[in-house]
Design a protein around this nucleic acid. Structure first.
Length: 477
RNA sequence: GGCGGCAUAGCCAAGUGGUAAGGCGACGGUCUGCAAAACCGUUAUUCACCGGUUCAAAUCCGGUUGCCGCCUCCA
């Protein structure tokens, strides 16, 4: 199956053809490390994690680069407000980021460069742009990129220069020749972090670091460049202008942008105060539930975050794990495989879905379908062959490898889910089990009135019972 | 003001020219002492609205309405 990727500037899916055979270079804009990451960040990180995982599965030799912006106005502002050096802030939040990625099972990128460790590449690029007449040093020692000198500005975001000028809403800094020009080197004020440069003691502009680091590690043309939708303009537009301006070659072959996480339909943001951090959320919600939730919509669509969405994803995940648990516990028998056909079809469907612009929503639908089919087979005949167990674990390993879910051992996972939160219901496990014993004694004595009474009592406190041939089990309702 | 995106059942959601995936919920059934779980069946003659193109449109084009985003830092 050929991989098709939706390319932002063309607004269409195209077959994926890397520049250098099997080698693929992918650069994704990471985070600015001045605060804890929220689930909007989580979505982007998880989406590109899955894309990286899938590209590798397809046999591409991937070099995945994801940066840290570790010097910037927000970091400086944060540091000043706390009276700390800026790098104490950036280092702390890099550590927090790594912890979050660990929790979310987002695999590390191959290279995770920091802007502050690539100042020389940045300065070199600014110099190249200046030499080519695409940048100019202003009197104050800052250097600006000259948008009017670069043909093709606006091609990524689909904007025309004239429209943008008409729409300028903000006061233009006096040092700029043109309102659209943007700083690629900013002179630092007293007390701000700075590096020596031919122009001033200063620091990189926002966009230049990504141009410098991506091309430094992946060459002048990247196969894939990704990030959140909000980065299309101006960040990626400006990156393109700088990189193509400096090197004279195509900067990016495939632009991939993920949609937002919204809350009540609005974009999550600091100013609206409606953001949820990964750390807080994963205290309550299993990381796989969060992954499943964030992957259950196509990566380009917005996804609205809510308690209901979380519980529905948890319900789905539990359904998958229960099916796996059944398989694991089902007795062995000799004879033909009864699941081989189902699993083969699933493997094909999974590949097909992922090849269609990383359609994880469709992949998950196939997983639901698989669950129904397997449950049906087990309903008809609870015994499976050793071969069946193997083929199921192989397909599950594929799912885990691509989506990063179903990596837990089913029984302990299900136990953990059903235990979580029972103390808030004012119950202990011992109490529940004691009541179950009483009920089963009543059932044995055929005192169903009493048995049902006990069951109803538990139900009213949020515990649902399940009678099976192996005994009575319970879970949160 | 400029630019862009989205609108699919009660809810979530896939589907970009060939006659509406999947999940949740609801209802009916099998199973069960009764339930729960699982499975089976039913649940959109129709894809915001109005026109157009086509043998054929949720899918393409034009218009209308509504929601969202970007244009300032943003995943």
């Amino acid at each position: 199956m050929t991989l098709q990727i939706y390319n932002t500037p063309y607004k269409k899916k195209h077959p994926f053809n890397p520049l250098n055979g099997n080698n693929v270079g992918m650069y994704v804009c990471g985070v600015t490390v001045y605060d804890m990451c929220h689930i909007g960040h989580a979505r982007s990180l998880i989406v590109f994690d899955v894309i990286a995982r899938f590209l590798r599965r397809k046999g591409y030799k991937l070099t995945y680069v994801r940066n840290f912006t570790d010097v910037d106005d927000k970091i400086i502002a944060r540091a000043n407000s706390l009276g700390k050096p800026y790098n104490e802030i950036s280092e702390r939040y890099i550590d927090e980021f790594i912890t979050d990625m660990d929790i979310l099972k987002v695999r590390p990128a191959d290279i995770e460069p920091k802007a502050t460790e690539h100042i020389s590449q940045i300065i070199e690029m600014v110099r190249m742009l200046e030499d080519k007449g695409l940048a100019y040093a202003a009197d104050d020692g800052s250097v600006y990129f000259s948008v009017s000198g670069f043909r093709g500005y606006g091609k990524l975001s689909g904007r025309r220069i004239e429209d943008m000028i008409a729409g300028t809403r903000f006061d233009v800094e006096e040092a700029k020749h043109d309102p659209l020009d943007f700083a690629i080197w900013k002179r630092s004020k007293e007390g701000e972090p700075s590096w020596d440069s031919p122009w001033s003691k200063g620091r990189p502009g926002w966009h230049i670091e990504c141009s410098a680091m991506s091309t430094h590690y992946l060459g002048h043309t990247l196969d894939i460049h990704g990030g959140g939708r909000d980065l299309i303009f101006p960040h990626h537009e400006n990156e393109t202008a700088q990189s193509e301006g400096a090197f004279g070659s195509e900067f990016v072959r495939y632009w991939i942008h993920n949609g937002f996480v919204t809350i009540g339909g609005d974009k999550m943001s600091k100013s609206l105060g409606n953001f949820l951090t990964i750390r807080d959320l994963t205290k309550e919600v299993h990381p796989e539930v969060l992954r499943l939730l964030l992957l259950s919509r196509h990566y380009r669509s917005p996804i609205d975050f809510s308690k209901e969405a979380v519980s529905s994803s948890q319900q789905a995940l539990v359904r998958f794990y229960e099916m796996l648990d059944r398989i694991r516990k089902s007795p062995l028998k000799d004879g033909d495989s009864v699941l081989a056909g189902i699993m083969t079809a699933f493997d094909e469907h999974l590949d097909e879905a992922m090849c269609d612009d990383f359609n994880t929503a469709k992949a998950i639908a196939h997983l639901h379908d698989l669950t129904t089919r397997v449950n049906k087979v087990l309903d008809d005949n609870p015994c499976v062959s050793p071969e069946d167990k193997t083929s199921v674990s192989k397909s599950v390993a594929d799912i885990s490898d691509i989506l990063g879910i179903l990596e837990e051992d089913p029984s302990p996972f299900l136990e953990m889910i059903k235990r979580s939160g029972i103390s808030e219901m004012g119950l202990t496990q011992t109490e529940i089990e004691k009541l179950i014993d009483q009920r089963n004694a009543a059932r044995k004595a055929r005192d169903f009135t009493k048995a049902d009474e006990i069951r109803d009592t538990l139900k009213s406190r949020g515990i649902v019972l399940k009678d099976t041939p192996e005994g009575t089990s319970w879970e949160k309702g």
